[in-house]
Design a protein around this nucleic acid. Structure first.
Length: 147
DNA sequence: GCCAACGTTGGC
DNA sequence: GCCAACGTTGGC
């Protein structure tokens, strides 16, 4: 397994985290001035991704349910660590803080309509809640979002 | 170890 | 409200 330092030379990775806004929204995260713990991830594939999330990485936050849109930008402030709530020992969490809401949320419909995203996990694996975002798609998404 | 039945997530 | 696409469970 490749290791990664948290030094200034380490390169940030890009992720998309899903959340049900009725349970925990981007606005809820933004209200936490010191950031918050991103927990509740239980799916094996999502956990595998989450274990690779490191401090300094950037995160797009996606709202499921009625919204179905990428709504916010966040930054990881603490790399994956064991869920402090205990529970199953394989569970991990990360700490994140909101950076800013997207000037223009990017909807799932928009993303699905663009063939460039056909292999993106958000389109391919609708139930996956933590996924990497390839750098080219990341830049494209930020552009669509008005950033 | 296989797989049928069941549960969950999230889009439609 | 339904269902597709998973994941999990438990009987064998």
């Amino acid at each position: 397994m490749p290791s990664r330092s948290n030094g200034p030379l380490s390169r940030q990775s890009f992720w998309l985290f899903k959340t049900d806004p009725d349970t925990y929204s981007f606005q809820d995260l933004a209200a936490k001035k010191k950031g918050d713990v991103w927990d509740g991830v239980k799916n094996a594939v999502a956990l595998k991704h989450l274990r690779a999330v490191a401090a300094g990485d950037r995160v797009l936050v996606y709202h499921t349910g009625d919204e179905k849109a990428v709504v916010g930008l966040a930054r990881v402030t603490r790399s994956a660590y064991p869920d402090p709530k205990g529970g199953e020992p394989n569970l991990v969490v990360v700490d994140v803080e909101a950076e800013r809401p997207l000037p223009r949320p990017v909807t799932l419909a928009q993303i699905k309509a663009d063939p460039r995203y056909k292999d993106f996990d958000l389109v391919r694996l609708s139930r996956l809640s933590v996924m990497p975002v390839p750098e080219d798609l990341w830049k494209e998404l930020l552009g669509l979002a008005g950033l």
